[in-house]
Each structure stands twice: as C-alpha cells, then as structure tokens.
C-alpha cells in the first residue's frame, strides 16, 4: 500500500530558530496518527508543510503530490481543522454549507445537513453568535462531509469542555473514519486520544524521536512498580524514567524483556502521558 505522507529530512528555520530539523516519517493509509510534542517542537510547522502552507527544505510527498507545487489539487483530497474558532465570524451557518457545497467537489451536502440536524445550530446563526463548542460542531460537520483521504487536525479541541471534546472524537470515529481515510492529529490532551490512535509520533526540537504503532509501543515500553529493596536492580537495566509513589518507585523501560521485568515487580503498560513526560525530560530546561 502506498503511503499517504512521506517525509524525508524535513527542515525549516524561522529566522535563526529551527522549527523542523531533518524530520523523517511515513504515514500509511487507514491510520490515526498522533503527532505529540511539547510547545515549539515543530508540530504545527510539520502540519503546515504537509498542507502546503509553508516553505521547507527536504523531501515531502502527500498523496503522491508535492504540497508546495500542487496545493490546489491536493486540497481536494486533504482537509484540515487548524484550530478551534478559525471560521470567519460573519459567516452564517447556511452560507457556510452553501459555500463549501459549491466550491468543494467532494462535499456531500445531505451528509452535512444530517450532521447539523444533530446539533442545536440554526441555519441563520452567524459564527459570532456561536459558542466555541458549536463552532467546532459546525466545522466538524463541514469537514466530515468531505470525502477526503487525509484529515489533519491541529489542536482541534483546545478550549472546549469535556462534553464537546468527547463528542468530537466520538463523531470522528463513528461517522467519519474508515480504512480509506487517514487522520493526523496533534494535541496536548494526550489522554483523550490515547485509545483512538493507531500510531504515535513524538516530535522534539524539530525531530521525530519516536515513531511506532500502538501495538509496538505496548510491546516495547513497560512500567514497573518496584519496591525499595529491588530499586537498585531496576536501575541497572537503564530505565528511561523513575518516579516515586508511596515509597515505591515506578520505572519506565524501553525494550527490556517482560520476564526480566516481572521479577522486579508489577508490570503495566505505560500511559502515553507518562511516556511523553519521560521522553521529553529536560525540554524546557
């Protein structure tokens, strides 16, 4: 199967600050990929490069096209929600649907109207009258009605309450995602997307520091709860991270055999959040 996104040595500098520093990765079809990184790690720049919104050095192919040159063709197959509340404030709900229906060749109007019927949005309402959560509902209804191959989401749920956040990802999974589609999402609310991701990428200082599917991550990384008497033995095995809880130590290991770890204590699968914190240690120092 050909990949949806292929990036090799992606680099981009803003003034003297590198935003991307030779990032390489591949995203296959039918995946839900989380691109996770601390602030300023280059997430948004990477997405902008994929969307053809910025210049960059290196090789990048999206659906077989160069986003710098073929952006107009590319955007028929790629959708994105850049952030909450980027819909123009003067736009009416009905006009938004009309506009996309008449300018996007892959938009399904009936589908969009069905999505909107499940919300409290009124056709005559203007975006300025909507709450942040409702704006996202509108944006999501528009985007989910477009039969695109790649959907890019940059912090799509920032500033939303938990009801809207849950509903957002639930709609995506139930009404949108299938094996033909690929979703690339960045967010800081890692816990919320943990269970829907198929792949995980960590980005730090413009480089991809971890790129694996969720099964591999489950096999590779383990968290062990170790009593004080075995703590030193655990430290011998080069843990990624160690933290203290109730007089016991929690160690995070990368690629240490399970049988070996089970002798030290109770082995669990680490959460992405803990993995992230361990990987990004010292980022802001």
């Amino acid at each position: 199967m050909t990949s949806v996104v292929t990036a090799k040595g992606l680099s981009k500098r803003y003034r003297s600050q590198p935003a991307l520093d030779g990032a390489s990765f591949t995203i296959g079809p039918g995946r839900i990929v989380g691109l996770i990184g601390p602030n300023g790690a280059g997430k948004t720049t990477a997405l902008k490069a994929i969307l053809g919104l910025t210049t960059f050095d290196g090789h990048l192919e999206v659906l077989g096209l160069d986003p710098r040159k073929d952006r107009n063709t590319l955007m028929e197959q790629v959708c994105f929600i850049a952030d909450v509340a980027v819909l123009p404030r003067w736009l009416k709900v009905a006009d938004a649907v009309d506009f996309v229906a008449n300018t996007h060749p892959r938009f399904d109007r009936a589908k969009c109207e069905a999505f909107l019927a499940r919300t409290k949005l009124q056709p005559k309402q203007k975006v300025r009258q909507l709450s942040k959560g409702m704006i996202v509902q509108l944006h999501l209804a528009l985007v989910m009605s477009i039969d695109a191959k790649l959907l890019v989401l940059d912090e799509p749920t920032l500033g939303l309450d938990i009801l809207y956040r849950k509903q957002f990802y639930q709609s995506l999974l139930e009404d949108y995602f299938d094996e033909e589609k690929t979703i690339l999402v960045t967010t800081h609310q890692v816990e919320e997307i943990e269970h829907i991701l198929t792949d995980l990428m960590f980005i730090r200082d413009g480089r991809i520091v971890l790129d694996a599917d969720m099964d591999t991550i489950g096999e590779r990384f383990s968290e062990v709860l170790v009593g004080p008497e075995l703590a030193n033995a655990a430290r011998q095995l080069n843990p990624l991270d160690e933290r203290q809880v109730f007089g016991k130590s929690i160690f995070l290991f990368d690629n240490v055999s399970r049988s070996e770890l089970e002798r030290l204590g109770e082995v669990r699968r680490p959460s992405i959040g803990d993995l992230f914190v361990a990987t990004m240690k010292g980022t802001y120092a």
Partner: peptide
C-alpha cells in the same frame, strides 16, 4: 483581515486557488 483573525486557515483548507 482573514490572516489576522486566522480564518484564512479555513479558506485555505478548501480547494480554492
């Protein structure tokens, strides 16, 4: 104006040259 309020990102998400 649309660059300032960032709605340009919405317009640019559509296949409009």
């Amino acid at each position: 104006d649309d660059r300032r309020d960032r709605s340009v990102l919405f317009w640019k998400s559509l296949p409009l040259s």
